[in-house]
């Protein structure tokens, strides 16, 4: 389930949005500054803002600032911009516009948000796991990855499978995966490094999104997995390097090990 940050002062707009994005959840912001805070501190996958949420403020310019600080978070605009505003919105990096006449069409709204609300990281990890571990192991990793923003812990994962923690550990071993705790640690690091590619997010804010008690705890986790400090890893290549290290740590199960050895 994805989290959306929204700045919509009008109650009717809030109702339309909440209905259209159900079962995803929405966190409401009070103003542009608050919207920035929500995106920075919470694991949001998309932001939505009414261009005229605050009088005397250039909404398009606020969209530009958000898109510069959070280039991987799609920003949707709610309202009825004129031609010039639409042109400026495109340059400012808005993902799309929801016009008043579209707002009542839940079906269309759902279609507009669908690509933005999908998990961008889990499919990348899953693609790299193909051929290394079995389908069952990949399913476990996919489910664990999808719940990282919810701060999933090992017992939660075991409960989802209706098995005990020790059974989950045995299955991970049989499937050639690291222990469930280590797996979640790696997934948190990968999600964290993905979010850290956005200049608006700090190590502290990402640590909080991932459920760490502090930025220092997140830094320690990076040191224990990828090694080094987070700053040099705040790029796409940093994420790719972490993913390579995670894959190198996978024992793989017997059959898949043989396949990968054969090339």
């Amino acid at each position: 389930m994805a989290l959306i940050a929204a700045l919509l002062p009008d109650q009717a707009d809030r109702t339309s949005l909440a209905a259209a994005v159900h079962p995803h959840s929405v966190e409401w912001a009070r103003d542009w500054r608050d919207l920035d805070r929500v995106v920075r501190l919470r694991p949001v996958q998309a932001a939505i803002a009414d261009l005229r949420a605050e009088a005397r403020k250039d909404g398009v310019l606020r969209v530009l600032r958000l898109s510069q600080r959070y280039p991987r978070t799609p920003i949707f605009v709610w309202g009825d911009p004129d031609g010039r505003e639409l042109y400026r919105l495109g340059k400012a990096g808005a993902a799309d516009v929801i016009f008043p006449h579209d707002a009542a069409d839940g079906q269309y709204l759902g279609e507009l948000f669908e690509p933005a609300l999908g998990d961008a990281i889990a499919p990348v990890i899953d693609r790299r796991l193909r051929g290394r571990v079995s389908e069952a192991a990949r399913l476990l990793v996919r489910e664990a990855a999808a719940r990282i923003p919810e701060h999933v812990q090992v017992p939660d994962l075991a409960r989802a499978y209706r098995i005990s923690v020790s059974t989950l550990e045995r299955r991970c071993e049989a499937w050639g995966l690291p222990t469930p705790g280590r797996l979640l640690l790696w997934l948190r690091i990968l999600y964290g490094l993905h979010w850290l590619q956005e200049p608006g997010r700090s190590v502290e804010s990402v640590a909080s999104q991932l459920g760490y008690s502090s930025g220092a705890a997140f830094r320690r986790a990076i040191k224990a997995t990828v090694g080094g400090r987070p700053a040099p890893l705040r790029t796409r290549s940093g994420f790719d390097r972490a993913l390579d290290l995670f894959l190198a740590e996978l024992p793989g199960d017997g059959a898949y090990r043989r396949v990968s050895t054969l090339g």
Partner: peptide
């Protein structure tokens, strides 16, 4: 306008149909 001097986004990164509005380039007003 701080947005006017920004480069236009490439089509694959722009909002759907947005390139239609590029005819406004330099004539935004």
């Amino acid at each position: 306008d701080r947005i006017a001097p920004l480069p236009s986004p490439p089509r694959d990164r722009a909002m759907p149909s947005w390139p239609v509005l590029r005819d406004l380039e330099g004539r935004e007003r």
